[in-house]
């Protein structure tokens, strides 16, 4: 039982983790992309469709990533190059994603999906308890952790990361130093889209291998909240994602155990928890001010 709960927590946390790490990079570059939900749902529908037609989990994951990137490219062109309002453009992206995915996915409703295969790691998967809990997942779970490690390393240990953070913290100075603010931001947005697409694909290929309209159900927004929760530090995203994964899973198991709270109250827990967590984090001024990218959400137009 405990083992099973742990496994489902990992499955529930993975999409949040991946989407949030992508958005973290985007926000570190100074762009707020509120379209995570829309990019995730596109990843979910495209991933499902490709898996259904080709039968290949690998191709499905790649297609989901590309779908997320395509959506984010649209967002990037608008927000970065055409200087549109970031909040409103992100919302437009979400509305668009929900609509397009609904149209594409209409024929997928009711089709049984395919689950990503679990990786077998010789020697480790056979271990008692640790084996099934840690070493019997599909590749995306490990990719999630690799992403956190890489993001953390690149952001804080490499020149590329330094430039990215400079662009997010003071775009005018970064521009004056000769860095192409717009291009760096656009690339960051693309990275965020790839992550959101992957996270969405994971939803329809592993979390619940089927297509249901609107199946992301606010996880894109929770991922956005996780970035604030993590105060823009990659490893804290892991803590946040697992906390939320645990809350989501506990609401399922609470009913199985026989807790008599109405299911709707349990379902609303992750959203309420998000609000509470946001309040706690943001009331700590010192914590947020240190790490919040200073140019977050501000449009930059180079004067040439």
């Amino acid at each position: 039982m405990f083992e099973a709960i742990l496994l489902t927590v990992i499955t529930a946390a993975t999409p949040l983790l991946i989407a949030a790490i992508g958005e973290l990079v985007v926000e570190r570059s100074g762009v707020l992309n509120l379209g995570v939900e829309g990019m995730m749902i596109m990843g979910a529908v495209v991933g499902f469709g490709v898996a259904h037609h080709t039968g290949s989990g690998f191709l499905a994951v790649i297609a989901a990533i590309l779908a997320g990137m395509l959506m984010s490219a649209l967002f990037g062109v608008f927000v970065v190059y055409l200087a549109t309002n970031q909040v409103a453009t992100g919302l437009a992206l979400t509305i668009l994603g929900l609509g397009v995915s609904g149209m594409i996915g209409e024929s997928f409703i009711g089709i049984p999906g395919m689950r990503l295969p679990e990786l077998y790691i010789p020697g480790l998967t056979e271990l008692p308890f640790i084996g099934p809990v840690l070493f019997s997942h599909d590749g995306v779970v490990y990719a999630g952790f690799a992403l956190v490690f890489l993001t953390s390393y690149v952001l804080f240990r490499t020149r590329m990361g330094l430039i990215l953070r400079a662009v997010g913290d003071n775009h005018t100075s970064a521009h004056a130093l000769g860095y192409s603010v717009l291009k760096i931001r656009f690339l960051a947005v693309l990275f965020g889209g790839a992550c959101a697409g992957l996270a969405g694909g994971y939803m329809s290929l592993a979390y619940t291998p089927q297509w249901v309209e609107n199946m992301i159900a606010g996880r894109g927004w929770i991922a956005l909240a996780l970035v604030v929760f993590a105060s823009w530090l990659p490893w804290r995203v892991v803590a946040g994602a697992y906390l939320f994964g645990a809350v989501t899973v506990l609401t399922f198991h609470a009913q199985a155990i026989g807790v008599t709270i109405p299911s709707q109250f349990l379902s609303s827990l992750p959203y309420l928890a998000t609000v509470v967590v946001l309040v706690i984090i943001s009331s700590n001024r010192r914590l947020t001010l240190v790490n919040t990218p200073a140019c977050l959400g501000k449009t930059f137009i180079p004067d040439r």
């Binding site: 649209l74 608008f78 055409l82 200087a83 549109t84 309002n85 409103a88 453009t89 919302l91 437009a92 992206l93 979400t94 509305i95 668009l96 994603g97 929900l98 609509g99 397009v100 609904g102 149209m103 209409e106 137009i301």
Partner: peptide, 27 residues
């Protein structure tokens, strides 16, 4: 026989275009 979701697509596109056109007011 087209999905009524097309309304949502058209709404999303409309918002995108409105925002881009607003850019042309200032730039």
């Amino acid at each position: 026989g087209i999905s009524s979701k097309i309304a949502s697509v058209i709404q999303g596109l409309l918002l995108c275009y409105v925002l881009v056109c607003d850019t042309f007011v200032l730039y």
